[in-house]
Computed example of a mutant assay.
Amino acid sequence: MATIRKHRGKWQALIRRKGCPELSRTFTKKADAASWARQLENEAETRGLPHNLKELDTLSLGDVIQRYRDTITVHKRGRQTEETRIRCVLRQKIAKTQLANLSPALFCTYRDQRLRYASPDTVRRELSTLQHVLKIARQEWGIPLPSNPVQDVRKPPAGRPRERRLEPGEFDALIKACKICRNPLIEPIVRIATETGMRRSEILNVLWIDVDLAARTLHIPLTKNGHPRTIPLTTRATELLSALKNDDARQSFPMTTNAFRCARKRVQSRSELVCLTSAPMGQFEVIA
C-alpha cells in the first residue's frame, strides 16, 4: 500500500488505495517519510484515505469567492449588495492566498487591517460572507478544506442601534432640500416613508398593481423577512400616490437603488443633517 522511494535527492512516500486518489509527500529523511506513510495507513484502516490536498495548492481564496459569486450570490435577493462586498474583498491581498495557507490567524490579520478603513459592521458582514463561501466550498463543492478558518475568528461587535430621531424643524429642512432635487420622485418617496414606515427597497419596488387606492391599502409581496404583508394607507399617503398615479407605468417609483442613494447624499448635504439614512420605522434618522 505504501511505497518509499528516492526522488531527486529526497525520500518520497507514495500511498495507493483502490477507489481513492494517490497521495504522496516528499521528506528529507527516509524515517520521516515512513512515519508519515504509517500514520496514513492507520487512518485508512478506520476512516479511509483523506482527500488529495494538492487541490488546495492550486486554488486561491479568490477563485472560490468568484465561483460563489457566479453560482450562489446571483440567486440572492440582495445580490447587488453582496456583489459589491465581494468586489471589495477580491481587491484585498488575502484573495490571492492559496487555500492550503488559510488559517484563523490570517483572517484575524485581515480583520484588523480592514477595521482601519471600514466600519465594524462592514467588516463583520465581510467575514460572514467569507465564512459562508468556505462552508459551501467544503460541503457542496468537495474542496478538501480540513476546517473553516473563519469560523474561529472573533467578529467585530455589532454597531450601536440608531436612537436619535429628527428634531423639530429638521423634517422641514429635509423636505426643502428634496424640493431642490431635479428628480421629482425624491420628495414623494421621503413622505411615503414617513407615512407608511416602509423600507427603502420596499418603496422602490412598489407596483401599481399592488396599490388599492379605493381600499387605501398597499400590498408588499416581497419583504426583508420573506413574508408578504398588506399595510393600510393614511390619508396623506393615499393623496401622494393618487397624484403619482400613471396607468402607463408599472412601477410607482421608477428609480434604481443607486440613484436614490446618490440623491439621498445630496439631500443630506443641502439640509445639513448629519448621516441621514432611511429607516424601517418610516423615520429618517439623524446619527451624530
Results as ranks from 00 to 15, higher is better:
Lys76Leu: 08
Ala158Arg: 14
Thr84Gln: 13
Trp141Glu: 06
Leu130Trp: 04
Arg182Gln: 13
Pro161Arg: 13
His227Glu: 15
Pro144Leu: 12
Thr129Asn: 09
Lys176Trp: 01
Pro280Asp: 12
Arg162Cys: 03
Leu127Trp: 01
Thr122Pro: 00
Ala31Glu: 13
Ala33Glu: 04
Glu45Met: 14
Pro280Thr: 07
Thr238Ile: 12
Asp70Ala: 11
Gly282Ala: 12
Trp208Lys: 01
Gly62Pro: 08
Glu126Met: 03
Thr129Gln: 10
Gly282Asn: 05
Ala263Leu: 03
Lys245Leu: 06
Arg17Val: 06
Ala158Pro: 08
Arg138Pro: 00
Asp212Thr: 10
Ile143Glu: 09
Ala279Lys: 02
Trp141Gln: 06
Leu106Val: 11
Glu239Asn: 09
Gly282Leu: 08
Ala137Tyr: 01
Thr97Leu: 15
Leu244Ile: 06
Leu218Thr: 07
Arg250Trp: 04
Asn205Leu: 13
Leu130Gly: 05
Thr109Trp: 04
Leu23Trp: 05
Arg77Trp: 02
Gln139Pro: 02
Leu134Lys: 08
Arg111Glu: 04
Ala34Lys: 13
Leu90Ile: 07
Arg182Pro: 01
Ala33Gly: 14
Glu285Val: 05
Arg114Thr: 00
Leu127His: 04
Pro21Cys: 10
Arg69Trp: 03
Val133Tyr: 00
Phe260Asp: 00
Asp57Lys: 13
Ser119Lys: 12
Leu276Cys: 03
Asn101Glu: 12
Ala214Arg: 10
Arg160Phe: 04
Pro120Gln: 03
Glu43Ser: 12
Ala279Val: 09
Gly159Thr: 06
Arg216Thr: 14
Leu127Gln: 03
Gly62Ser: 11
Leu90Ala: 15
Leu218His: 10
Arg85Lys: 09
Arg124Val: 02
Val150Lys: 02
Leu241Glu: 00
Thr84Ser: 15
Ser269Leu: 12
Cys108Pro: 00
Asp63Phe: 10
Asn148Cys: 09
Thr71Trp: 03
Leu207Trp: 09
Gln139Met: 09
Ile192Gly: 00
Arg79Met: 13
Glu272Lys: 15
Leu207Gly: 02
Ile72Trp: 01
Arg236Ser: 15
Leu207Ile: 03
Asn225Gly: 05
Phe27Thr: 07
Asn183His: 11
Leu244Trp: 04
Ile4Cys: 10
Pro280Phe: 11
Leu59Lys: 10
Gln113Lys: 11
Leu166Thr: 08
Pro149Lys: 06
Lys29Phe: 08
Gln80Val: 15
His75Gly: 09
Gly226Leu: 01
Leu241Ile: 00
Thr81Tyr: 10
Gly19Pro: 01
Leu61Gln: 05
Thr73Met: 09
Thr217Asn: 11
Arg91Phe: 08
Leu233Cys: 12
Ala263Trp: 00
Leu130Tyr: 05
Ala249Glu: 14
Gln131Val: 01
Pro104Gly: 02
Val153Lys: 04
Leu174Phe: 10
Thr235Asp: 12
Ile231Lys: 09
Lys96Gln: 14
Gly197Cys: 12
Val64Phe: 05
Met281His: 14
Pro188Leu: 12
Ser278Ala: 14
Pro149Met: 07
Arg229Gly: 02
Gln283Ile: 14
Arg5Thr: 13
Leu115Asn: 00
Arg8Met: 07
Gln139Tyr: 05
Arg191Gly: 03
Thr234Ala: 06
Glu126His: 04
Thr196Ala: 13
Pro221Gly: 11
Thr84Cys: 11
Gly19Ser: 06
Arg38Gln: 12
Asp212Leu: 05
Leu102Phe: 07
Leu90Thr: 08
Asp121Asn: 15
Trp141Pro: 07
Asn42Lys: 14
Ile4Trp: 08
Thr277Ile: 08
Val64Pro: 05
